[in-house]
Simulated scan of single mutants.
Amino acid sequence: MKPEFENIPLVKNEEKKRFEIEYNGHFAFIDCKETSQQIALIHTESEPELAGTGAAAAVVEKTLFYIEESGKKLLPFCPYVFAFIRKHPEWKRIVDERFEGYDKI
């Protein structure tokens, strides 16, 4: 994660059902669905003003830390999150082994 994002807090926006960070007045976020044992990450997006800044990667990494701390398992349906985990395989430790694409990570 780029240093400029390290101290930005991750917000769990219950109303919008997403995890988000705000940087310079703009948002990067991940839509999610949560059960008592799993968190499914559905779609990652950042506002156009944040393109190329690393904001999307930062919100993903912060969300993965949140999921790990919660003790829940990850279902990485979002292609961006899936690719992030392939690039950083140490995060496979929080992916639910029953996830259909688990063996492709």
Rank of each mutant, 00 (worst) to 15 (best):
I42W: 01
R86F: 05
V11I: 15
F27H: 14
K87Y: 08
A51E: 13
A40C: 07
N24Q: 15
K87T: 10
E100C: 04
I105H: 02
D103N: 15
S46N: 13
R98L: 09
H43K: 05
F5G: 12
D31T: 10
V60L: 05
L64W: 00
F65S: 09
T53C: 08
A57E: 15
P76E: 01
K73N: 10
M1Y: 11
R98S: 12
E90H: 12
A40S: 15
E97M: 09
E100I: 11
S70K: 01
K12W: 07
L50W: 03
Q38C: 03
K73S: 13
A57Q: 14
G52H: 10
E61G: 05
F27I: 11
C32N: 10
G52S: 11
F65N: 13
N7M: 06
A56T: 06
V11W: 05
K17V: 03
E20R: 09
L75F: 00
V95N: 02
E97C: 05
F19N: 06
I21E: 02
V60I: 15
T53H: 08
N13C: 08
Y66K: 06
K62R: 13
P48V: 07
V60M: 08
T63E: 00
L75N: 00
V59Q: 02
F99E: 01
L75T: 00
F19V: 08
D31I: 04
E69F: 06
I94H: 01
K104I: 05
E49G: 04
A58P: 12
H88L: 04
T44G: 04
F29D: 12
A57M: 06
G52R: 09
P48C: 05
K17C: 09
Y66V: 07
K12A: 09
E6I: 12
E14L: 14
A56M: 06
A56H: 05
Y66Q: 08
K73G: 01
E47D: 15
A55T: 10
Y80A: 04
E49V: 06
A56P: 11
I21V: 10
E15W: 07
A83I: 04
E97K: 15
Y80T: 08
G101F: 10
V11K: 14
K17Q: 15
S36K: 15
M1T: 13
G25E: 11
E6K: 13
R93W: 02
K92P: 03
E45G: 06
P76V: 00
K104Y: 13
E6P: 01
A51K: 13
F19H: 08
S46Y: 06
K2R: 15
P3K: 15
F84I: 02
I94G: 01
A58T: 07
H43F: 07
W91R: 05
E15F: 11
W91N: 06
K62I: 05
L64F: 03
R86E: 14
V60Q: 04
T35F: 05
P79L: 00
E69I: 03
A40D: 11
W91H: 07
P3Y: 07
V60C: 06
Y23P: 09
K87M: 08
A83K: 15
E49N: 11
